[in-house]
Design a protein around this nucleic acid. Structure first.
Length: 428
RNA sequence: GGAGAGGUGGCCGAGCGGUUGAAGGCGCAGCACUGGAAAUGCUGUUUGGGGGUAACUUCAACGAGGGUUCGAAUCCCUCCCUCUCCGCCA
């Protein structure tokens, strides 16, 4: 959520930044509602002050003289109290409605891009920051797409998974399951070494949590919802882990907080019919190890770079070629002020595919989820900055391994760092 | 799922219709005392919105939302959550 005060005081600047996202958001309705609301508030506040005053006077009189004498004066005051109350009863719902409308509009506004986010209208204007591991790019001529080789080796079974669920689900069998589990453990072990505290959060989460990180109200159709409860299947661990701290005032010295979390993630993938129908790239359920940070505002840019490095370290350890993309203003996500994507080399497609997305949300989520910090001895509070990044998407990492480590005989070499986890050096 | 208890400030804990943003204690900060410290004493110590350059001022908040009342932390209703016992269960 954007700072209403900032919108009020610098509407032109805010609007300019919003438009960098290549959208046509309007601020005027918000500004109008805001000034109406504030006007109404000052009227209401005065009435309430009078009402409080009447209550006090009556209280005093009752105590001084008991209930008996001066009854008339008290009656008059009570009468006035009733009149004030009647006016308030009229004003209050109106003001509440204004506030609700204002809030609804504010919740629909995306974050402002960071001043360091490159300008651009869509993904074609993203910037490649660096590339790693060109020397590990295999000769692609013999390489089968990961889905195909996986089915062939009997470690991915999508046909049977469809019977149990529907399309865009897979079952991992035998070494497939083992490799997935190995990747999860490996990623967690590395990130814990890098200083992240592991969390196993709920994966069924309520609406408030989704609102806190920005998935609601705008993107309801992206998530699976339980019919009988206010619970949703988490689309990413970012949601439950960040919201662990909602409504809290953290002690300044407890920051930064680093968390990593393995969870399955669930996404409806509405609007992507027909895309990536084979393999592990786009599933309704996939595993991910997520990195989450809550930091002091002045350190968030630096913490963001470090987080990207932590994600890259996994790809480097696995010797998977990748590149780092800095998303432009037209392509960053709703909650992000700045975002880097990591894209891994997929030889069968002869292209890089997103395997991690690392966002700095500044105080956008912290405002929605109301996560603040306070320094001892200083007065007042400030919103933390929240960051999240995949470290990494496990299914896509598996896909990358099945392709980049595919050998001419159709077997898969197990990356060195995983061999102790799966207890073999070759699959197939 | 059934029965009961409860949700108050950073924490513990009182208050159960009248000036209570909230006693008391702990913690924390400042000052005094001290050679220095402990102990002691004094003072201060929530958050959010509005107005004001500021000093300051005003409103709101005792799980959430309604209701009764001139006035609610206190009474009534609904919901949420926590705990205990029973049942069920990985």
């Amino acid at each position: 959520m954007l700072d209403l005060k900032k919108i009020r005081e610098n509407p032109d600047e805010v609007l300019k930044l919003l438009h960098q996202r290549n959208t046509d958001y309007q601020l005027q309705p918000i500004l109008d509602l805001d000034s109406q609301q504030r006007e109404m508030q000052s009227v209401r506040t005065e009435l309430q002050a009078r009402s409080n005053e009447i209550g006090k006077i009556i209280g005093e009189k009752m105590r001084q003289v008991g209930a008996n004498p001066q009854r008339e004066k008290i009656q008059n005051l009570k009468e006035e109290g009733n009149q004030v109350k009647a006016k308030l009863a009229q004003l209050e719902p109106e003001e509440r409605e204004l506030k609700a409308k204002l809030e609804a509009l504010l919740l629909e506004l995306p974050n402002l891009p960071s001043e360091t986010t490159p300008m651009g209208k869509n993904e074609t204007e993203n910037i490649e920051v660096r590339r790693w591991g060109d020397e590990f790019i295999p000769d692609g001529s013999h390489i089968l797409p990961h889905g195909e080789i996986g089915e062939k080796l009997g470690i991915i079974d999508s046909q049977r998974a469809v019977k149990v669920a529907q399309s865009r689900f897979v079952a991992l069998i035998g070494m497939g399951a083992a490799l997935e589990r190995a990747l999860i453990n490996f990623m967690l072990d590395r990130q814990i070494e890098a200083g992240y505290i592991e969390v196993m959060p709920p994966v069924l989460i309520n609406s408030e949590a989704l609102k806190g990180t920005g998935q609601l109200p705008k993107f309801a159709e992206e998530s699976f919802k339980c019919e009988n409860d206010d619970l949703w299947l988490t689309p990413t661990a970012e949601v439950p882990v960040t919201n662990l701290y909602s409504q809290e005032i953290l002690e300044g010295e407890k920051l930064p907080i680093y968390h990593c979390a393995y969870t399955p993630c669930f996404r409806r993938e509405a609007g992507s019919y027909g895309r990536d129908m084979r393999g592990l790239i786009r599933l309704h359920q996939f595993n991910k190890v997520e990195l989450i940070k809550l930091v002091r505002p002045e350190t968030s840019a630096e913490e963001h770079e470090k987080m990207v490095n932590n994600a890259e370290a996994i790809l480097q350890a696995l010797k998977l070629p990748y590149r780092v993309i800095e998303l432009c203003t037209g392509d960053i996500g709703f909650s992000a002020a700045k975002c880097y994507d990591l894209e891994v080399w997929l030889p069968s497609a002869n292209t890089y595919r997103e395997i991690s997305s690392c966002s700095n949300c500044h105080d956008f989520q912290a405002r929605r989820a109301n996560i603040r910090f306070k320094d001892k001895g200083k007065k007042g509070t400030d919103y933390v900055h929240t960051l999240n990044g995949s470290g990494l998407a496990v299914g896509r990492t598996m896909a990358a391994i099945l392709e980049n480590y595919q050998q001419c005989d159709g077997t898969i070499k197990v990356p060195d760092v995983l061999q102790s986890y799966v207890k073999t050096d070759c699959i197939g």
